[in-house]
Design a protein around this nucleic acid. Structure first.
Lengths: 315, 315
DNA sequence: AATTCGACGCATGAATCGACGCAACTCGTA
DNA sequence: TACGAGTTGCGTCGATTCATGCGTCGAATT
């Protein structure tokens, strides 16, 4: 019983791919059981499994399947290539197939992330995200990796009414990755920036990205969750007295300018109010509200707030 | 002491299978009398009988014989999908009830956590939670610290329609803490346990607690998020073929037994299906569903699943 | 004398095989 | 911007291979 003879189905399930894909990999790339008589069932040895795991890991990191297979065949235990798989000018075609997530030309990492997500492989997802954040930082990772994948996922999900579980899993992984960033970077000083979703707004990931970026920049913040009613927001502002408030609205339906007005009119009025997110309409914003265009801009604006506070606090 | 040595024929008749099948099970799966000299007659002890009964029950429920045998050999007395799930001692717990559970006498840590939550001080919240998990483990922390606080918070929030932001913040912190636990403990082996919320169910924190506890015990798992439609759940099961599925339902309205039935009837039927959470009603569960009473029980059951199936080579 | 043993073989249903094709994605080119 | 070419994962179909429960047979056990 020590000689495990794993069947195709078992292996496929373990890798999170379809049985047919296993067969395809075998006949297209030669990536199959070391001993296999045509017509007979395939029996995967542990060594074969390792090879397949390598294949999985490489594709999860954005390597084109054909290349990954070539690699896996001759160097089963190979680690990942260089620090950042910068693919530029390479002619290696890499398309997607089957039920995938469209990521466009967002780089190999996005493709790998999409692939790992389709397999519900949270470990691979975490690995990709962590690596990206470690090498490129939060802002770049958000703009070039996470947002494209999440957008593609949402689009596909809206169209197909499927992949909901994939979307949730990825969201959770992203959220966790950002949380890890916040935890890793020690928060110095009291949080003077409050991040909050608009009322009824349930997408909090962009705010979490901003939070992680702030933490990365050494700026402490406070992040309320999704669906924050106006009353709760005002209460939080009143009790914590933040210098700046960022209010996120993903869709137009949650972008009620009244919330912003209430913020500006309430007691302990924050120095600065940001209306972030694509939901807000520029022409309907009350005066005194800043509308950052993207994550980087929001980050720099927030940093400016922090700096100005430091100066004023010097007295 | 009444160590009845049952003969093969008697055992076969009692189990309702052929004598030859008994012999086959012995030589094919090693599922036979603990002591047996080749050529001599087999004598089955009560312990052996229990093992065989397990085997029969599992196969009767559609589990593949080879896997069932593996389970029966090393986890003979584990709780199993029985025809009449009469395991129920009345609601000794249930977090979604109506009992008044303010933080009350849940220990000083709970009080401190509640205070930090009121201040929206995520750093302090994290600190308290992390310390608790580090000293007492996930299960204890959940039962004695987090659940009381969350329950009290939810109750007050339901009554006052306020403190929503506090609840969200605490939830996020708890979620992050669990995620950190999962990340810290390296996942060994492929995840064979799938955790998922029932359709429409939006409380995923208890499942995350289970996931963290599993990770703490070195058991890999896969956690889908909240609000998983039945179709998505079935798709995930089909694609990943988990050994066990835990379906969480917090309130009665989300506890549709149809979901469980679909799980058991679908292709790639999981070996074990758990109906977890206070939403489920014991008398409405389909046969073959296990209903763990609390986090600790769910953990031990899941651990049993892992043990019975884990003999794979480490990657 | 009644069972049981070990070995062999058979019938059947599940799993897999090989081949084919589809759909979706990316990229180069017009 | 649109369109064709190349990739790739996976669903489907008829045939085949495997796994599994059990019957049969001569010899041994109880």
């Amino acid at each position: 019983m020590a000689d495990e003879a794993l069947s195709a189905g078992v292996v496929a399930r373990r890798l999170g791919i379809a049985v047919t894909t296993l067969r395809t990999w075998h006949q297209r790339y030669g990536l199959g059981p070391s001993e296999h008589v045509p017509g007979r069932h395939r029996r995967y040895t542990p060594a074969d499994l390792i090879r397949l795991e390598t294949m999985r890991r490489l594709t999860a990191n954005g390597v084109a399947p054909a290349e990954a297979a070539r690699w896996a065949v001759q160097a089963p235990d190979a680690a990942l290539p260089g620090p950042a798989p910068r693919t530029e000018g390479r002619g290696a075609r890499d398309g997607g197939g089957g039920a995938t997530i469209p990521v466009g030309r967002s780089g190999p990492a996005a493709r790998g992330l999409a692939r790992a997500a389709m397999r519900l492989d949270s470990n691979a997802i975490n690995e990709v995200i962590d690596r990206a954040i470690r090498t490129g930082g939060v802002v770049v990772t958000w703009d070039t990796l996470l947002r494209p994948v999440l957008a593609g996922l949402g689009e596909r999900h809206a169209a197909t009414a499927a992949l909901i579980e994939v979307e949730h899993l990825v969201s959770r992984c992203v959220s966790e990755a950002f949380a890890a960033v916040v935890r890793a970077h020690a928060p110095n000083g009291p949080p003077r920036i409050l991040l909050s979703c608009a009322d009824e707004e349930q997408h909090s990931l962009p705010l979490e990205a901003l939070g992680a970026a702030l933490a990365e920049a050494g700026i402490a913040h406070r992040l309320l969750g999704a669906r924050v009613p106006v009353r709760a927001l005002l209460g939080a502002v009143h009790r914590t007295g933040p210098a700046a408030v960022v209010l996120w609205s993903q869709t137009r339906s949650t972008a009620d300018p009244t919330q912003l007005t209430a913020l500006l009119a309430g007691p302990r009025r924050p120095l600065l109010v940001f209306a972030a997110g694509p939901g807000w309409r520029a022409d309907s914003l009350p005066a005194g509200v800043v509308r950052p265009a993207n994550l980087a801009e929001a980050l720099s604006l927030a940093a400016a707030v922090r700096d100005s506070l430091d100066q004023s606090a010097a007295g």
